[in-house]
Amino acid sequence: MIQFFHVTKRYPNGQIGLEDVTFRIPRSQFVFLTGASGAGKSTLLKLIYRGLLPTVGQILVNGRNLASIPRRKVPYLRRTIGTVFQEFRLIGRRTVLENVSYLPRILGASPRQRRQVAEEALDRVHLKDRIDDLPEHLSAGEQQRVAIARALVSRPEILIADEPTGNLDPDLSREIFGLFREVNEAGTTVLLATHDRHLVEEAGGRVLHLAGGRLASGGDEVGGGGAPGVDS
């Protein structure tokens, strides 16, 4: 469950990242986050995993008020939120197994346990047989699937993806979207940011649409909604 109450994010340089945004995403929902480049999608996602703090407003994630989580507890919040990015963010000198099992490793899993949980996660993205490869030996689509497996390894309640198909061609994008669907069908809340309207229309479902930092549509399920913005 993700809830924003009149959230505004102003960056230190004065730039407005997000302005007076209110919405609610219930558990296990699949939601697209759309908007042109600079509309505030990445800002909104970073606020959810407390990569940023809001300037104004309240954010609830899985029932917890993010403002009241002390800094040293933030890692525990992050373990309940999987994150995927456009640029994959895999570590080149680590194998797929190592990339996927960062969290199990620091939680003290033995090498065998690590391989097992990594295999399970890779299985969900249909990439089990590449577990011992280095990322550079994988295609772009495969690399993004490894990143998704890494996000899934902690069995997060929420999966956040910031333009995960931005570097992929339409066919691969559809395939990756399909993976997110599968993850969602298994019960995980998915919030997927993209500016690819075509794919969103094709996929259907709830869409939060941002324009100029404001919620232009899709926020009304909680009653408040966003002020209509100017879509650029």
């Binding site: 525990y76 919040l77 992050r78 373990r79 960062y102």
Partner: peptide, 16 residues
């Protein structure tokens, strides 16, 4: 720095 960012994202504590 990229690995540190990844560790932060997956929820590693400062200690680790």
């Amino acid at each position: 720095r990229e690995e540190v960012a990844t560790l932060r994202l997956v929820g590693a504590t400062e200690f680790f």
